[in-house]
Design a protein around this nucleic acid. Structure first.
Lengths: 143, 143
DNA sequence: GTATCAACATACTGTTATAATGGGTTAAAG
DNA sequence: CTTTAACCCATTATAACAGTATGTTGATAC
């Protein structure tokens, strides 16, 4: 499994916010109710989105969250990468990891690099605005 | 992380066997030594390859393993799928899993299906014979 | 026929990531 | 100054992963 709940929920949060864009601040409680996800768990996910300046949070009465970037400017691949701490399909391609000593003669490295690149290309071809069109696609990929 | 050691090691075992193809039975001990992987752990991986009839095992003195299929007939995607128990990038696309009740109106399902298909297409485009060419590629994918 | 060798089988264990939960603090609005 | 909702920190149950240990079966060589 490449993508955990953190990445999946993050996208659902962003789509939810995008759908209520321009309607002022959105309470996490409401998102949690609509998406049927525990509010407490969502907190830890939104925290990351705030940190990355994709979402802005306002405290107190009448507060909540809103997007600080337009939906068509939020890249899905980027979101998934920071929520998951990278999307490398194998350990040896993780950034920040120790480079594999077998790399120079590894017979599978090229294959893994290609898979990594394929995943990157696909995920990077979507924005949150694309995801809002329920009928899938919205770009080159036929499903 | 999509691929665990089970999938990665399985490919390395198959490549190792392919490189020694036609030289009689190959002892797991030798593969373990060459690949620098614990023999005991390899056992549990080869077991699966034997079960799938990709590899044949002979017991006793002079025994070992050999491929029962030509390297160019062993599909990498297929191997990874059964070693990993599926390559679905998200839980809701796992085969044998309960279908998601939110599917009919899910705004991300199409995206995930596309990712799944992209991964499938890429991995299925390689055979073990392709992996034997160290200089990566060997098909449409440029790395 | 028995000693050796290597595959086959089963059971167990430490480690790590995931997916949360709980309780308390700060800041904005009314 | 009370309510509200974001923010912050710590803890925990579960499960998968990665590996280990012990023993059994079957083929070959002597």
């Amino acid at each position: 499994m490449l993508i955990s709940t953190r990445g999946r929920y993050a996208l659902r949060i962003l789509i939810d916010m995008a759908e209520h864009n321009g309607q002022g601040y959105i309470k996490l409680k409401d998102i949690a109710a609509r998406q049927e996800i525990s509010e407490k768990y969502l907190e830890s996910i939104v925290k990351e989105l705030v940190k990355r300046r994709i979402v802005y949070g306002l405290r107190g009465k009448g507060g909540g969250y809103r997007l600080s970037v337009e939906p068509d400017q939020i890249n899905v691949g980027e979101v998934l990468r920071f929520m998951e701490g990278g999307l490398a399909p194998v350990a040896c391609l993780e950034e920040g990891g120790a480079p594999c000593p077998k790399a120079p003669y590894c017979r599978t490295l090229g294959f893994w690099r290609g898979l990594d690149e394929t995943i990157r290309r696909y995920t990077d071809s979507f924005t949150v605005a694309d995801l809002m069109q329920t009928e899938s696609v919205g770009n080159d990929y036929i499903i």
